[in-house]
Design a protein around this nucleic acid. Structure first.
Length: 352
DNA sequence: AATTGCATCAACCGCCCAGGC
DNA sequence: GGCCTGGGCGGTTGATGCAAT
């Protein structure tokens, strides 16, 4: 048979933790550890709390070296980079930010960072046509928000918006700025078939991609930063999906298994990281701040990503997040780990 | 001063997965 | 192989505080 029930839900206390409860829990764990069993822990120390609640309290609040609030500029960028690439995998994102908890990052993203990024373009007519305004339920590209939300998850939509912002910020030919391209890519237009049936390795450059190779002309006459043709996606090899269905609700492609060598991944990742980080910084803090802070910014970004690619830390990271290569002889199974919605996003403008 | 609306964040809920039985 | 549980995770809720009216 299985194990004993988790806890007696009728007799557990809910709501905010008192200082006494905190002290009990902290003292016990600091002395004895969790004992590998959160469920039994509250009974041992006389707390009328669910084991899961104890675990959450410890991890999010009582654990040593926890930082609250005051997110730095570079933390913002790391969060954004990772969110765009892997979505709301808060535990993975938190693993890259020492002292931060997944709950903290999740709250920070939902309450501030998301608005900071998505709000940038909301006022423009073009963005209004394409953006999904979840607060007001306003029409989106002539299609009801209800229908849109059925086709794409919130997370995928947000990430798509962010992608389009990054891609289209300085690019009048991009998908984002080119209504002629919208129906083809609209989630309701052709939401699955090209992706489901296409090998991850054979997705060709889209018209958007080709257009983005052209020299950029800024219609508004603003100063231009040089667009980065074929802006690589630093995370295209970073994507890991270990669930059977994507956020779109479609099964992940399981045929056509493609492998990606770690050497190639590291090279692509490092090269692309700088580009994406710069673009993100432009979005978050404005173009002007680019000048004079670029060296530091790039260094920061590279340090972050270097950690992932480096030695000891990176191996922990890879192992923790499913990239352990024990079973794949130093390669990462690209196709079997890739989400269709991510494929769709990256198929819009980036090389795969 | 009272009311309303908004922002923040700690905590809970429900689901999934790995592993014990 | 199937059932059950603990651990972990992401999404959501509700309490609280602050700002605007």
């Amino acid at each position: 048979m299985g194990r004993a029930p988790c806890c007696d839900k009728a007799n557990v206390k809910k709501g905010p933790w008192s200082p006494e409860e905190d002290a009990k829990l902290k003292a016990y764990i600091e002395e004895h550890g969790t004992g590998g069993n959160w469920i039994a822990l509250p009974q041992k120390i006389g707390l009328k709390r669910c084991g899961k609640s104890c675990r959450l309290r410890w991890l999010n609040y009582l654990r040593p070296n926890i930082k609250h609030g005051g997110f730095s500029e570079q933390e913002d960028q790391i969060i954004c980079s990772l969110y765009i690439s892997i979505g709301s995998r808060w535990s993975i994102i938190a693993a890259q930010l020492p002292g931060r908890t997944d709950n903290d990052i999740k709250n920070y993203w939902n309450t501030r960072l998301k608005k900071k990024l998505l709000g940038k373009r909301r006022d423009s007519p073009q963005s209004r046509r394409l953006s999904i305004n979840q607060d007001t339920n306003e029409e989106t590209n002539g299609i009801s928000p209800d229908a849109s939300s059925q086709a794409l998850s919130t997370s995928a939509l947000e990430r798509m918006q962010l992608h389009m912002q990054l891609q289209g910020l300085y690019n009048p030919f991009s998908f984002y700025n080119n209504p002629a391209l919208w129906p083809k890519f609209h989630p309701l237009g052709d939401k699955v078939s090209p992706i489901q049936q296409t090998d991850a390795n054979t997705i060709a450059a889209t018209p958007v991609q080709q257009a983005s190779d052209a020299t950029m002309i800024e219609p508004s006459g603003q100063n231009l930063l040089p667009i980065k043709p074929n802006m690589p996606n630093p995370m295209n090899a970073y994507i890991h999906e270990d669930r059977n269905t994507s956020t779109l609700g479609f099964p992940s492609p399981s045929s056509s298994r493609t492998t990606l060598s770690m050497d190639n991944f590291n090279t692509n990742f490092n090269a692309a990281a700088v580009g994406l980080e710069d673009e993100l910084h432009d979005l978050l803090y404005g173009k002007n701040e680019c000048f004079g802070r670029q060296d530091k910014q790039q260094q920061t970004a590279m340090e972050c990503f270097k950690d992932m690619n480096g030695e000891k830390e990176s191996m922990n990271w890879w192992a923790t997040n499913g990239f352990d290569d024990k079973s794949s002889a130093g390669t990462w199974d690209f196709a079997s780990n890739l989400q269709p919605d991510l494929l769709q996003e990256y198929g819009l403008g980036y090389d795969l």
